[in-house]
Design a protein around this nucleic acid. Structure first.
Length: 490
DNA sequence: ATAGGGTTAG
């Protein structure tokens, strides 16, 4: 960068022809915007001094901004400016870059405008632009539009398939993602690392362990290079699917581990209740001199919350404040959860009151659950009031408040809330779960009888429930079993 | 110079 700055300084003092100067400055912009050692602010300054920037310069700066964190919006602004000026004319590169920026910031309006422009410009048949459009729609959760665009691509290459698969995986349409993966193989397109990352991440989201294992075996068979991203995806998949030992194995065998990899492992251990291991992994991460990010801390705090490790949690909270990680709403949620689980509801409330930003509904709900567990009616009512003001249409809030009343046997107030819900026409979203059997993910929702084998399943659940009773246990009310019991009652 | 990838609390 220093050498470049010197060259830049000399360029400016020479009486060069404008075209030569523009060309040289364009090259500087491209380097500063795109190189890993570059400097986007410098690129912007140089760009603003180019007398008559050509499309190459515009593209460099638009792409550069889109790739730098928190600068993607600027790409969109630059593109608008370019369009308003009317020249130079955007090409396929410009469109692909600006669509990428739109997908990073989920700028749906702007992306749609670009799409209109694509139609008019006649670049609609460029595979790059088409794939960028698919990605853009998927990132904006317009999965139907993404699919329409995808279907219009006449010759779908690997990148197009991967984009669509990852789009489905991201919005949780796991069967669609896996189905498309099979279709892709049927037409003879071989997946690469990037495709497989999306497939594995779809498996993680669905608890589809069998398919995940199959993909893992497939990669080993095909000698596909299991790189950093793939390994992390595998660690996550095995962790989410309950195979923490396999997750650990993949993790240990990774030659290089970055913050995401460590975080994934820590979160995996935390959700398995292996709090001590999670914390130990965190210290190994620090020893390895990998800088923790905000997700790492979420994992650490959630491990402490699950293990009831209050003082450890407090320690990590204050060291987080000391380091440069600004606590986000999610971190506060985690800490509030930790305190509430440890029956320190008052302290949790104080923490929330001291927040610089007003608490979001998630935090308030966490507090409300804490009040319920500790039978703190008055405090709970105050929190519920705030919550209902913030989100008067969310059924979850009414259910939580009614649960609070139930926990202190205030049946009249409870039925009052239920009635209020009914009067407002608010319906609870049914609880749901899913399981993969032989490569298909079966989904169940509370009260939903649409599964072809509902009768047999209900029969089995009834049997389990009776056996639990026969053993002299109360049917245990965990999240899953309460759904089952509800299904039986229905 | 162009399009697709991993981690996120309750």
């Amino acid at each position: 960068m220093r050498v470049l700055r010197q060259i830049h300084a000399r360029l400016c003092t020479r009486p060069l022809p404008i075209s030569t100067l523009s060309f040289a400055l364009s090259k500087i912009v491209a380097f500063c915007a795109l190189s890993s050692i570059g400097d986007i602010d410098y690129a912007r300054r140089v760009f603003s001094r180019i007398p008559n920037p050509g499309i190459f310069s515009w593209n460099s700066i638009i792409r550069g901004c889109s790739l730098v964190e928190n600068h993607s919006r600027e790409s969109v602004y630059l593109f608008r400016r370019l369009v308003r000026r009317g020249y130079p004319c955007p090409n396929t590169f410009t469109l692909a870059f600006v669509l990428k920026a739109c997908s990073i910031i989920s700028a749906c309006e702007e992306g749609l405008q670009v799409h209109t422009r694509v139609f008019r410009s006649g670049f609609g048949s460029s595979p790059f632009v088409q794939t960028a459009l698919v990605n853009f729609y998927a990132k904006c959760e317009e999965i139907g539009l993404a699919r329409n665009t995808f279907d219009e691509i006449p010759e779908k290459n690997l990148v197009a398939w991967s984009t669509m698969i990852s789009g489905y995986a991201k919005v949780g349409l796991v069967n669609e993602a896996l189905g498309l993966f099979r279709e892709m193989q049927k037409v003879g397109v071989e997946p690469d690392e990037v495709t497989l990352v999306s497939v594995i991440s779809a498996c993680a989201g669905a608890g589809a362990l069998d398919i995940g294992r199959w993909v893992h075996a497939y990669m080993e068979r095909q000698m596909i290079d299991i790189d950093l991203e793939l390994s992390t995806a595998l660690v996550n998949m095995y962790g989410k699917c309950g195979c923490i030992e396999r997750a650990k194995k993949v993790f240990c065998e990774m030659p290089v581990k970055d913050a995401k990899a460590w975080s994934t492992m820590i979160v995996g251990l935390a959700i398995h209740g292996l709090s001590e291991s999670a914390l130990e992994t965190f210290s190994r991460m620090e020893e390895a001199k990998v800088k923790p990010n905000h997700v790492t801390l979420l994992g650490v705090l959630s491990a402490c919350a699950h293990g009831g490790l209050v003082s450890e949690g407090r320690k990590h909270w204050s060291s987080m404040l000391e380091s440069r990680i600004e606590p986000s709403m999610e971190h506060y949620s985690c800490m509030v959860d930790l305190l509430c689980r440890a029956h320190l509801v008052d302290e949790a409330c104080n923490l929330v009151e001291d927040m610089a930003i007003p608490p979001n509904p998630v935090i308030l709900r966490t507090l409300l659950v804490g009040c319920k567990k500790n039978k703190m009616l008055d405090r709970g009512e105050i929190i519920a009031e705030q919550l209902l003001e913030l989100e008067p249409l969310n059924a979850e809030n009414y259910v939580l408040l009614s649960n609070l009343y139930a926990s202190v046997s205030q049946w009249e107030k409870m039925s009052h809330i239920r009635k209020k819900m009914k009067d407002k026409g608010i319906k609870a979203v049914p609880g749901c779960s899913s399981i993969e059997v032989d490569g298909f993910v079966h989904e169940f929702a509370m009260g939903d009888q649409s599964h072809p084998e509902t009768e047999e399943l209900t029969e089995i659940l009834r049997d389990i429930s009776e056996r639990v009773r026969d053993f002299g246990h109360k049917p245990f009310i965990s999240d899953v079993s309460s759904h089952c019991l509800q299904a039986i009652n229905d």
